[in-house]
Design a protein around this nucleic acid. Structure first.
Length: 349
DNA sequence: AACCCGGGGGA
DNA sequence: TCCCCAGGGTT
């Protein structure tokens, strides 16, 4: 049983028609790989189409503003991907004079491009024999070969990369790399893998040992922290509000939001009244306030649960540095804020 | 080595 | 609920 040939044969029959598979243009391959990091094909597909349409070449992407790129990325998550994508496009256009890096060593120098993505682009666009190891490959190899080394340990990362390199089809590395990932995604799924209909079932170690569900082994479950967010949604006499760009190194960097006050616990209306809002941009401003949502809106991220209250601040004056309400949807915002804006429906005010 | 970074979907 | 997803960057 030749693992590599079986995977390639399976792929020739079952491969999906995906837009980035119709071209070897490295820009399109790169774009698809960044979008698909930690993102399922179904979720990333509409974003890929939108990016190709709005930025047909790396020059178009480089000449756009970061805010425009973030706006198009809005809702997809892991926004550093969009910031790095944009920075790398500018680097390619303005430093490399538009000549796209054409090998693993140069590709991995790009912001947001690590071992996986450099291998994917190098093999698919440039036929370089570098093996990809993504979540699909970890799962498939750990099961088929019965490897119990944790996939997120230093030892595991090296071990699986080495094995993947041995299995790689050096003649058509791009085709094989896509095949092995596709096999993991469609056949050797995380839950309910299709072992009965699998052409590798006779030689699959995990299936023979009846431990398919226990592989791959992964260490360290991320602990989830809870945070309490209070957003100050101001409405002044000119139908404007305060909208700010997030700074710093935390989540949602360079996306926009209402002024945020983080607290140790969920605030009652009385407790909110004790906050000294005169220390903020509301200094010397007359205002009334109401609580928009009695029950905390809980926004769940992979590592944080955000318990959120939206406070509606009716300011009886004209705010400084305020944003007209009808312009809010022009800015890139996290889903938590996007949902609020849509639900609150400022436009009827 | 450990932690941070989003959001959606499946079971 | 918990886990996973065509991972990468920082400390």
């Amino acid at each position: 049983m030749n693992f590599t040939k079986e995977i390639i044969n399976w792929y020739s029959i079952h491969k999906r028609n995906l837009p980035w598979r119709t071209s070897k243009n490295p820009y399109f391959i790169w774009l698809s790989e960044i979008i698909l990091q930690q993102t399922q094909v179904k979720q990333g597909l509409p974003y890929y189409d939108a990016f190709v349409k709005q930025f047909p070449t790396v020059f178009d992407l480089a000449n756009a503003s970061e805010e425009t790129v973030l706006k198009l990325w809005q809702g997809l998550g892991y926004y550093s991907r969009a910031r790095n994508l944009h920075a790398a496009a500018r680097y390619i256009v303005f430093e490399l004079k538009g000549e796209f890096p054409d090998n693993y060593k140069d590709l991995i120098q790009l912001k947001g491009v690590g071992d996986y993505t450099a291998s994917a682009i190098a093999s698919i666009a440039f036929d370089e024999a570098t093996a990809v190891v993504d979540g699909n490959v970890y799962r498939l190899l750990s099961r088929y070969f019965g490897i119990e080394t944790p996939i997120n340990s230093t030892k595991g990362i090296k071990e699986f990369k080495q094995l993947a390199s041995v299995l790689l089809d050096k003649d058509k590395p791009g085709n094989y790399n896509q095949a092995v990932m596709e096999f993991g995604a469609l056949q050797c799924r995380p839950k309910n893998p299709n072992c009965n209909g699998c052409r590798l079932k006779e030689s699959c170690v995990a299936l023979q040992k009846n431990c398919v569900d226990n592989l791959p082994v992964k260490l360290r479950k991320t602990k989830v922290s809870t945070k309490y967010f209070n957003y100050l949604v101001c409405l002044d006499t000119k139908k404007r509000t305060v909208f700010e760009k997030r700074t710093g190194k935390g989540i949602w960097r360079n996306l926009y939001q209402f002024p945020l006050i983080e607290t140790e616990k969920s605030l009652s209306i009385d407790e909110f009244a004790l906050l000294n809002l005169n220390d903020t941009f509301l200094k010397d401003m007359p205002f009334d306030y109401t609580l928009y949502n009695e029950v905390d809106k809980v926004h769940k991220l992979s590592h944080q649960h955000l318990h959120t209250k939206f406070w509606i601040i009716e300011v009886k004056d004209s705010l400084n540095n305020a944003t007209p309400l009808h312009k809010l949807k022009k800015y890139p915002t996290p889903v938590l804020i996007t949902d609020f804006i849509n639900e609150f429906n400022f436009e009827v005010l």
